[in-house]
Design a protein around this nucleic acid. Structure first.
Length: 269
DNA sequence: AAAAAGCCCAACCGCGAAGGC
DNA sequence: AGCCTTCGCGGTTGGGCTTTT
């Protein structure tokens, strides 16, 4: 016998969430908090499993989510953290308030990984890819990538990780580099300097009290757990406090379609 | 203009960990 | 101690959108 499913899936809805479902879930959580995900869909009147509700809330509906693309600095941080933590996306995400592990994972898989490969750097180790491996990888490259590589085209360059226009700005001012298939990235330090990870690291240690990313004393367990924090807020029924706390940083504009669901908060005051 | 290919990301799946009984 | 339930994580998928041919 295999493991029992997390929920009775008969009659449960799957696939993309509708606005109406989002409204129900938001209303329920803001009114009642989260005590047990399994009971959330029932109590909220949703034909979803608890797992699906949790995912939807964490990855999309949480009011403190930061929307929009990743900044250059964030990308640098992700690369650095990934080199330390590997695919522990939740740990990595804990260093980015407002970002989800899923979002970071997707960004890594769709953008950063490809770009690092393009630069001849192994995304997993941040070390130069052996020529053999590289040629092996080339076999797996898409036609488009091959085209980009072979012609060192404007487009290929544009598509490269960390956006070369950004990266160039970070390079030593007197070094003018051209990015084409002849560029040698076998020097790892060189890449790091291009990414300006060093200066970022020093900045971070100055500005962040929780950052000790890659030092020998780095602890995998020291990250603050956002979801736990949120959950404890909710469990204390400090709804208003929770909302107020986020109020100053919320991208509420992006929540326009859901606006009316939050009106009840004003009415309470 | 239409078809094909590629890209992106929300959502799902399955597993392990944690906690309660 | 062992079983069961729930949660959280990481890997993967599928479909919509965009770009290319």
């Amino acid at each position: 016998m295999g493991r029992q499913p997390c929920c009775d899936k008969v009659g449960l809805k799957r696939g993309p969430w509708t606005i109406e479902e989002d409204h129900k879930l938001i209303n329920f959580i803001l009114n009642n908090g989260i005590h047990c995900w399994r009971t959330v869909p029932k109590l909220a009147g949703l034909l979803r499993c608890g797992k699906s509700c949790r995912l939807r809330w964490i990855n999309y509906l949480r009011p403190d989510l930061k929307r929009g693309g990743f900044t250059e600095k964030e990308e640098d941080q992700i690369i650095q953290l990934h080199s330390c933590l590997g695919n522990r996306w939740s740990k990595i995400a804990s260093h980015f308030p407002g970002r989800t592990d899923n979002e970071i994972k997707n960004h890594w898989n769709t953008k950063i990984k490809k770009r690092l490969k393009f630069l001849g750097v192994d995304p997993m180790t941040l070390k130069p890819i052996e020529q053999k491996e590289q040629s092996g990888d080339d076999k797996n490259m898409t036609d488009q990538q091959q085209k980009n590589t072979s012609k060192g085209s404007e487009q290929g360059v544009e598509n490269m990780s960390l956006d070369m226009t950004k990266t160039e700005g970070k390079m030593e001012e007197n070094k003018v580099m051209t990015w084409d298939d002849t560029t040698d990235f076998s020097n790892y330090e060189m890449l790091c300097s291009q990414l300006d990870l060093g200066s970022w690291m020093s900045q971070e240690t100055k500005t962040s009290t929780t950052s000790s990313y890659c030092s020998s004393s780095f602890s995998l367990d020291d990250s603050s757990n956002l979801s736990m924090d949120e959950s404890s807020y909710l469990q204390e029924n400090s709804l208003q406090q929770w909302v107020d706390g986020f109020d100053s940083i919320l991208p509420w504009d992006s929540f326009n379609p859901l606006e009316k669901d939050f009106l009840f908060l004003d009415n309470r005051q």
